[in-house]
Design a protein around this nucleic acid. Structure first.
Lengths: 245, 245
DNA sequence: TCGAATAATACTGTATCCATAATTATGAAT
DNA sequence: ATTCATAATTATGGATACAGTATTATTCGA
């Protein structure tokens, strides 16, 4: 018993280790990813029952890895496992949105704050590094302006994600990023996109500009506040979208 | 195919649904819970390899539900799954603590803020309800004082958890609570307990008093700040504990 | 004709089995 | 003696098979 001793003797950082696997991801992980995609695309709609057997057939795999994938998704909160009843796609209520967005605003605000501080620290210490990072943000923002002008919502959406990601990276707190990513996952369940609201693109741009301006002035508190409001403003747009989709 | 249609037609709230299961929890869930206990107790130490077969034998189950449980724990971050290499208990580095605590401070601070606001709102609206909630907090705090006087660290620890839980409940944001719980799970990996530091009990009490006082004055911002500092102060104590354990 | 009890169905949950890949041990060659 | 290659060991990953239970359909009685 216990014939193969632990090879890797020590520290396993849970966050970093996720990307340690250079090898092909396990089947259950691939399946989980496919399922996420389907859920986000609403091919598997919120509240829908997930038929293990037919999905396994469709994927050409057995139920075992599929079930493992479902366990993972359940732990993430994307699906709900009811004992002896099966697996259902999670559904967000309006109340959930009201609770999620303030939390997200808090977290993203902190990211902006930390990023600004980091930027200021780097500028003082390392010199050129900071301006490189900041100009990257400005580049992304320029893309946003372009896509907004072209009314290309999809690209705007992508660039927007990039903007927030870059900011998270700058902030440099992996745990903070993790929580934000976890939280944003849920929002993808709604698929309703506040950017589709008339005038939201322009408004979003203005908010981004405010954030960038605050960062440029190295005013971390202001950056946090603007980001905070930016997220809540997204919630407000979503609410409007609900009554007149 | 798809013979049994989805019975439960619609909204499945991921958070609330977790406790919907009146039925006995699935085996994999029980196993996951046992594993969590072992991990927290350091019977399965950070970095240790998890031998599926021997654990399954020990639990008297097959590997299947055990593996499902491990997938869940991996999604939670308590263990790390390396493809074809097996499963290892996660380990936190000092740097992780430095990143986690500020985030936790942020979240807990928000809880204090929301709870205070809620309290004020209830007082205006419902009347007696608020004072009942607040006196419950004061009761728990009284317990804390007692246990501290008796140098009963274990009970103090328990009451402390209760205090924070009660506050979370008062704040009434399930998503916020969820994130906090998720985050605190990791801290249990360290098992190092800042309360064991000399003088920390008294300090912790003082900080709690400050929080309660701010709440009583319905000063939400102050409550948030005191809570924020309280958490960071816990981190500082932990750091001291590291050099002289 | 409608309701209740019972039988049939099929899905979930668990166990067993097999294939594959990784690691260690063994042996040969430098 | 040390290092590299090869083979044996064994644990992981996946598939299949089976048992138990919830749901649905059917049948019997009122």
């Amino acid at each position: 018993m216990n014939a193969r001793p632990p090879i890797n003797p020590v520290p396993v950082n849970p966050v970093a280790a996720a990307r340690t696997s250079l090898a092909a991801p396990a089947l259950y992980e691939q399946v989980a990813e496919r399922l996420r995609t389907r859920i986000y695309a609403h091919e598997l709609a919120p509240g829908a029952w997930i038929d293990e057997q037919s999905l396994a057939d469709e994927f050409g795999i057995s139920r075992t890895p599929l079930r493992e994938a479902l366990k993972v998704l359940a732990a993430e909160g994307l699906v709900v496992l009811k004992p002896r009843r099966g697996c259902y796609v999670a559904a967000l209520a309006e109340r959930d949105l009201d609770e999620i967005f303030p939390v997200l605003a808090l977290l993203e605000g902190r990211v902006a704050e930390e990023a600004t501080r980091r930027l200021a620290g780097l500028e003082a210490g390392v010199g050129r590094l900071a301006s490189a990072d900041f100009s990257r943000l400005e580049e992304i923002h320029a893309d946003l302006e372009r896509h907004a002008a072209a009314h290309d919502i999809d690209r705007f959406f992508a660039a927007n994600q990039e903007f927030h990601s870059a900011l998270q990276e700058l902030a440099g707190n992996r745990w903070l990023s993790q929580l934000i990513d976890d939280t944003r996952k849920f929002l993808k369940l709604t698929r309703r996109d506040s950017l589709r609201l008339d005038g939201r693109l322009k408004q979003s741009l203005a908010e981004h500009r405010a954030i960038l301006a605050a960062m440029k002035k190295q005013d971390a508190a202001a950056a946090a506040l603007h980001m905070h409001n930016h997220i809540l403003s997204g919630r407000a747009a979503l609410a409007k979208l609900l009554v007149q989709p």
